Computed example of a mutant assay.
Amino acid sequence: MNKTFRREIANVSIWGTTYIHPRNPYIVALWSTTFPGYGHLLLHKYIRGFALIIWEVFINQISHLNLAMVYSFMGKFELAKEVLNVNYVYMYIPLYIFAIWDSYRTTVEMNNLYLLAEKEEPPVNALTVKPFEVNYLDKRSPVVAMFWSMTVPSVGQLYLHQIISAFFTLIVTVMFVHYSHFIEGVHYLMLGDIDKSTEVLDKQWLLYMPSLYFFSIFQTYMNVVENNKLFEAEQKMFLKSKYQSSDFKIKAARVKSNANLRNI
């Protein structure tokens, strides 16, 4: 009789490997403060994460929030107030707070679900073969994943076979780089023309780049580490169910008393 499981820990599909594992809710909430939606992407809640990211960019662009922040950093407070669209800024605040709160709340709940699912030891499909794609569990290098994410955000996700996340990250990266003229600014900076480099940069779009770049590196590194743990757990469950006898028990070692130890 096949055993039924109430909860799953992981799912391996052609679009990627989705799984739950213990996370630090403060770390997840912290990434939501850098960019609404990033915390949810860490939780593999892609639909909610993508929706929050799109909403953040939309509201930020029409309110010119990033540009106002840049002028504030430069001490030009009057100019910051002038460019800021107050009508849309107040729509941004509830979104920002919700993203932080919801990512923290969801992390706590998913940690509890993981503890319950772990006791059931549900099986994990280690290999998925479809006509257009193949995905499987194996061990990958976190350092290699970080390196590729440093070159272009989204490449590290492709290395880990996170197709949906990689595709979305690539689109966002191209859009941010194009409208911010980031590569053009780096080009003039390498030529030593600092004034020209500063002139061509679009400050409103440029401010998206740091959070995107460093989040891509962090997300890829963490996903590779947890993917490797999932690979080991799947192997452990397979070997245990296939080769370990149901009568097998590990006897606890006896600890000698202090009196016996003194007589040795």
Rank of each mutant, 00 (worst) to 15 (best):
161 H>A: 07
39 G>C: 07
121 E>C: 12
49 G>Q: 01
99 A>M: 05
140 R>Y: 03
109 E>Q: 15
117 A>C: 12
133 E>Q: 14
65 L>N: 01
149 S>I: 02
18 T>Q: 06
196 K>A: 12
85 N>I: 09
69 M>D: 01
12 V>W: 02
79 L>Q: 11
257 S>L: 10
90 Y>F: 14
128 T>V: 12
47 I>F: 08
11 N>D: 10
26 Y>F: 12
109 E>C: 10
133 E>T: 11
160 L>F: 00
9 I>D: 00
65 L>S: 03
22 P>Y: 04
201 L>A: 06
4 T>A: 08
6 R>W: 10
37 G>Q: 04
150 M>R: 03
211 S>Q: 09
245 S>E: 13
182 F>G: 01
235 Q>M: 11
248 F>H: 15
146 M>S: 11
200 V>F: 05
87 N>T: 14
29 A>P: 10
74 M>K: 15
61 Q>Y: 13
226 E>I: 02
81 K>C: 07
147 F>S: 02
215 F>M: 07
158 L>F: 12
52 L>C: 05
159 Y>L: 02
68 A>E: 01
241 S>H: 11
124 V>T: 14
217 I>V: 13
179 Y>M: 06
97 I>G: 07
178 H>K: 13
252 A>W: 14
6 R>T: 15
33 T>G: 06
25 P>W: 03
34 T>F: 10
254 R>W: 07
190 M>P: 06
172 V>R: 03
251 K>A: 12
101 W>V: 10
100 I>L: 05
6 R>L: 13
126 A>I: 11
174 V>R: 05
26 Y>S: 10
17 T>G: 02
93 I>W: 09
210 P>G: 05
36 P>R: 06
182 F>P: 01
163 I>H: 08
220 T>L: 00
127 L>R: 15
239 L>R: 11
83 V>A: 09
176 F>E: 00
182 F>C: 03
74 M>Y: 13
167 F>S: 09
188 Y>S: 07
140 R>A: 00
191 L>Q: 13
84 L>M: 12
49 G>E: 01
